[in-house]
């Protein structure tokens, strides 16, 4: 039964959240709370914060990485079921997946050649 397989997941999630919540609650009873503006400033090695924190959010390499991840993650999605039934579908299935991987390799090689994998320009 599917339900019995995934019920524990639900229980586990509930359990973890419960435990975490309880811990937080207990902690909130125990800990002091004494905020003031200097304490609430973002940590910058003791200096006054300079510039926007968000400035780093749009560094292109991260996006390229994200895009690559999407591509390969999706490939994994196809590979798993294929790997399970490979013995049943035999040569044809193997060839088909081989073509698929080959196409991805082309993309990968392209990204490599293009320098998308170089972190520092």
């Amino acid at each position: 039964m599917t339900a019995m397989e995934f019920l524990p997941v639900l229980v586990m999630v509930a359990g973890v959240v419960l435990v975490a919540g309880a811990t937080l609650f207990v902690s909130s009873l125990l800990r002091p709370s004494n905020p003031y503006p200097e304490k609430n400033m973002p940590y910058e090695c003791g200096m006054d914060a300079a510039g926007e924190a968000a400035a780093g959010r749009f560094r292109v390499p991260f996006f390229i990485l994200a895009i690559l991840l999407v591509v390969f993650d999706v490939e994994t999605m196809f590979l798993f079921p294929w790997a399970v039934v490979l013995k049943d579908i035999g040569l044809v299935g193997y060839v088909e997946m081989f073509v698929f991987i080959l196409l991805l390799l082309v993309g990968f090689a392209y990204a490599w050649l293009k320098g998308a994998l170089e972190w520092e320009q």
Binding site: F63, A66, I67, V70, V71, D73, V74, M77, F78
Partner: peptide
């Protein structure tokens, strides 16, 4: 899912 992923990649 796969194709949407590609689409989102392009959109990003």
């Amino acid at each position: 899912i796969a194709i949407t992923a590609a689409e989102v990649a392009v959109a990003l």
